[in-house]
Design a protein around this nucleic acid. Structure first.
Length: 823
RNA sequence: GCCGGGGUGGCGGAAUUGGUAGACGCGCCAGACUCAAAAUCUGGUUGGGGUAACUCAGUGUCGGUUCGAAUCCGACCCUCGGUACCA
């Protein structure tokens, strides 16, 4: 009687076994190669979703594989616990965000444990705990000291009904998602971190991130957006010079208007005695702050009746206020050349502004400026007076030199990247450790008074942050005095917490320092796994923060993540699983029904990690079937296999096999192992699983009782199958390892080696093509000469039929693979 | 709008990175077992034509490079992610 496959029993017993032995607790060991595998920590939203299960299974498979390669593997887990959803839940349920968050963490931790992930739970952290965020406050003080943190005015979405700031996500069609009120842009004083000081290094080091996907590297390069150009100014009568930046100084003679932001001082001045301008400025207050909205909305503008003097021609140019120019970015003013910029062209066309071509195509062709602008840099300047007849580079240099010699401008390097705004007008976040004196001067909270504790037991009566109305929180005194002062009530952007948690995992229990020397043992992270949606923001902030920590002397290396894997989303019926679409599948119900191993196996099998994964209930059942078949096969043969162990552990005995069936099985097994090796390294687990299924299919058909050779080969193959599968389905692999009578735990078994002798075959199958199309196949002995192969190919019956009377022009031969006859 | 992915049978996907398109699995069809069903096992399964041997077409669309293209190049279409306050 064979035991039935019972995943619930196997998985709980195996997890208990690992727990008792603390199998995944690790410490620094200078004698072993370390491997730090990190998965992006979850936001504790309530329960795990399929995206988490996928993310963490990939990380766990990598960790277990690296462990079998003999490395000292760290795999930690924690909670990105501050954030907006806790406040929304608090308002909906009248529960304090802290209580809601902690309960979610407790539940989700049990779910992670049920999935059998090999985490070192001794290192678990929650970013909302004071033991964590106090170091963030301490580090902010270091940034403040270096003038890397500063305050400036910046735009927020203001809901005039709720009297609160809204996130971009909370604005729908320009209205607040709860109140329905039209959202206004407001300028608020906020804290910024000078990421632009590090723009050059962040850009240059992308070249060294060879373990990152090219797509992410490209996106980060484009996000940082280095450009070379010229900065110059227009003189404006009775005003400060109006400064602009351009990457196309070669088109400077084609400027026909200038645009400034609606909040620009020139616009505000014009509005004082022009009602239309004032109304236009008022209408711009309702623009949603998101870039997508800004770039896709209808472009509007109004002339201010103010002129700027062109620095070369001396011509008077009209200055407009425009809704697509932002005060906070760059100088708040841009020059416009409709002939050579498509957005300017469209604006000029719809507002009747002159289009003045100053570049003509280098090939002498005519461009129709009534149809579109000419953006190409491959042209020659014209209508540009002294700058006529130059190509792009010469024109740019000539213009820059001219402006520079007259003190009107200069060459500069510009970045698209803007400083990191870290202030949030929200409650559930890390308090920014600053105190304001009477005159609004910001003073950091002294290190020895940290942490500034966020009160957790709060009443969420409305949408307003409770600490903004809580005198017990915000009333304080200046450091070392009894002079009354006011605390900052803004909290940090939650990207602040997620920018350094991976370093803190290395130093559990460090109560006297943000990081200690253990960080330099584990860091940088060898493999980071997370969603592609983090390609720019989180991953760029984390790189930046790492460099800040390096420059504060906390760590030695320059980049935090050596290798990066961005996994695709989990889809159901073609779209992302989400509560609002009602197409979620609860991982818990699947685990209850089939067990963790089946869910893990399906997740790895259904698609390659970087691609989206289509969820399919039936296919999950197929993964379960596979595990049942494996279970049954091992149990049917357990006694014979265990008895064969002493024999087939002997490498000489294995190499001395003479039975042809045994030799064929070995060749097959080692081919699959070679492929599994490659695919483990490439992290293509779907094809690893496919190989394991092929192997099981051939083992199921194999007659292991035929003779001793067959039994020896059979046992070897079962052992290899178990090792290949164990990172993916660790519970059943653990149990079957012992059922086969193997010693120790498969968790720590050495990764199997491909026997290249076993791969050799006596014959080679050749594909014969005519003009690149498959027409026949022949099997020849491996020692055939090239000449023999050619003549066999040409005289093949099917091939002769195909060629007929046609002349053979060429024969191409790809070694051990194919012959292509060109006729 | 801008930046970056993706598009292969009924479905998820494979193809050693320019060399046999469709591995493996799901689904479906047929058969075995069963009074029957479930479970399990065996075989088949890109489409068209043909009893068959075989043959033609075929990797989003159109064009190109090559002895040979899912793979490289150009243009386009659809779709997904990001777009600085969702995380």
């Amino acid at each position: 009687m064979i035991d039935k496959y019972n995943p619930a029993e196997i998985e709980s017993a195996t997890q208990k076994y690992w727990d008792e032995r603390q199998s995944f607790a690790v410490s620094e060991d200078p004698d072993r190669e370390k491997y730090y595998c990190l998965s992006m920590l979850p936001y504790p939203s309530g329960q795990l979703h399929m995206g988490h299960v996928r993310n963490y299974t990939i990380g766990d498979v990598i960790s277990r594989y690296q462990r079998m390669l003999g490395k000292n593997v760290l795999q930690p887990m924690g909670w990105d616990a501050f954030g907006l959803p806790a406040e929304n839940a608090a308002i909906a349920n009248r529960t304090p965000p802290a209580k809601w968050t902690y309960e979610n963490i407790d539940y989700m931790r049990t779910q992670l444990k049920r999935l059998g992930f090999g985490y070192d739970w001794n290192r678990e952290l929650s970013t909302c705990s004071p033991e964590y965020y106090r170091w963030e406050q301490w580090f902010f003080n270091r940034l403040f000291e270096k003038n890397l943190a500063y305050k400036k005015m910046a735009v927020v979405n203001w809901d005039p009904v709720e009297q609160t700031v809204l996130a971009n996500e909370q604005v729908e069609n320009g209205r607040g998602w709860r109140s329905g009120a039209i959202v206004e842009r407001r300028e608020v004083s906020q804290w910024f971190i000078r990421i632009t000081d590090y723009a050059e290094e962040l850009l240059n080091e992308i070249d060294n991130l060879e373990g990152w996907p090219d797509a992410v590297r490209t996106m980060q390069r484009n996000w940082i957006g280095r450009s070379e150009g010229v900065e110059f100014s227009f003189t404006v009568e009775g005003e400060e010079p109006l400064e602009v930046y351009t990457t196309r100084p070669d088109t400077i003679m084609g400027i026909t208007f200038i645009s400034v932001a609606a909040e620009h001082p020139l616009a505000l001045k014009a509005a004082e005695n022009n009602r239309e301008v004032a109304e236009f400025i008022q209408s711009c207050k309702n623009i949603h702050a998101a870039e997508k909205e800004l770039e896709t909305m209808e472009k509007k503008g109004i002339p201010l009746g103010i002129k700027g003097i062109h620095p070369v021609s001396g011509e008077e140019i009209d200055i407009w206020a425009a809704n697509f120019v932002l005060m906070g970015y760059g100088t708040g003013a841009i020059m416009a050349v409709p002939a050579h910029d498509q957005r300017d062209w469209e604006f000029a066309t719809s507002h009747g502004i002159e289009i003045r071509p100053v570049i003509r195509p280098a090939d002498g062709s005519e461009h129709d400026f009534n149809q579109s602008s000419l953006i190409s840099k491959e042209g020659i300047t014209c209508n540009s007076g002294q700058f006529d007849g130059l190509d792009f580079n010469d024109a740019c240099n000539a213009v820059a030199e001219y402006l520079e010699s007259r003190g009107a401008g200069r060459k500069t390097i510009n970045y698209r990247l803007r400083d990191w705004g870290v202030s949030r007008q929200r409650y559930w976040g890390c308090p920014i450790p600053v105190i304001y004196s009477d005159n609004q001067k910001a003073v950091p909270v002294p290190d020895d008074e940290l942490p500034v504790l966020l009160p957790e037991n709060v009443e969420f009566s409305g949408v307003q942050s409770p600490i903004k109305n809580d005198p017990a929180f915000y009333r304080t005194t200046l450091p070392n005095s009894d002079i009354p002062a006011i605390r900052e009530t803004d909290t940090f952007d939650t990207f602040f917490e997620s920018s350094w948690y991976f370093a803190r995992y290395c130093c559990p229990g460090s109560n006297n320092a943000m990081l200690d020397e253990r960080a330099n043992y584990w860091l940088p992270v060898d493999q980071y796994v997370g969603g592609i949606e983090h390609a720019v923001l989180h991953l760029l902030y984390a790189r930046f923060f790492y460099k800040l920590m390096r420059d504060a002397g906390l760590i030695d290396s320059d980049e935090p993540f050596t290798n990066l894997l961005c996994q695709g989303m989990v889809l159901k019926d073609g779209s992302k699983m989400s509560k609002s679409k009602g197409n979620t599948v609860d991982p818990q119900s699947m685990i209850d029904k089939y067990g963790a191993d089946t869910v893990r196996l399906f997740m790895m099998f259904a698609s390659p990690p970087e691609q989206p994964l289509e969820w399919n209930d039936d296919a999950v059942a197929g993964s379960y079937r596979f595990l049942k078949r494996w279970w049954a096969l091992v149990h049917r043969n357990s006694d014979a296999v265990a008895a064969a162990r002493p024999l087939s552990s002997d490498p000489d005995r294995i190499k001395a096999l003479v039975d042809n069936d045994a030799k064929t099985l070995r060749r097959n097994t080692h081919q699959i192992l070679a492929k599994a090796d490659r695919n483990y390294q490439r992290i293509h687990y779907n094809t690893v699983v496919a190989g394991a299924m092929e192997l099981l299919n051939s083992l199921d058909r194999f007659d292991s009782g035929k003779n001793q050779d067959c039994l020896v080969a059979f046992r070897e193959s079962l052992v290899i199958l178990n090792k290949i599968l164990s990172p993916i389905v660790p519970h059943i692999a653990h149990r079957l390892w012992h059922v086969m009578g193997e010693a120790g735990d498969v968790l720590d078994a050495a990764w199997p080696r491909v026997d290249h002798q076993a791969l050799k075959s006596d014959t080679v199958k050749w594909v014969i093509q005519v003009n690149g199309k498959l027409r026949s196949e022949i099997e020849l002995t491996a020692d055939c000469s090239e000449q023999e192969i050619r003549s066999m190919a040409v005289t093949d019956r099917k091939i002769r039929n195909f060629i007929g009377d046609a002349e053979i022009r060429k024969i191409i031969l790809v070694p051990s693979k194919l012959v292509n006859i060109v006729i």
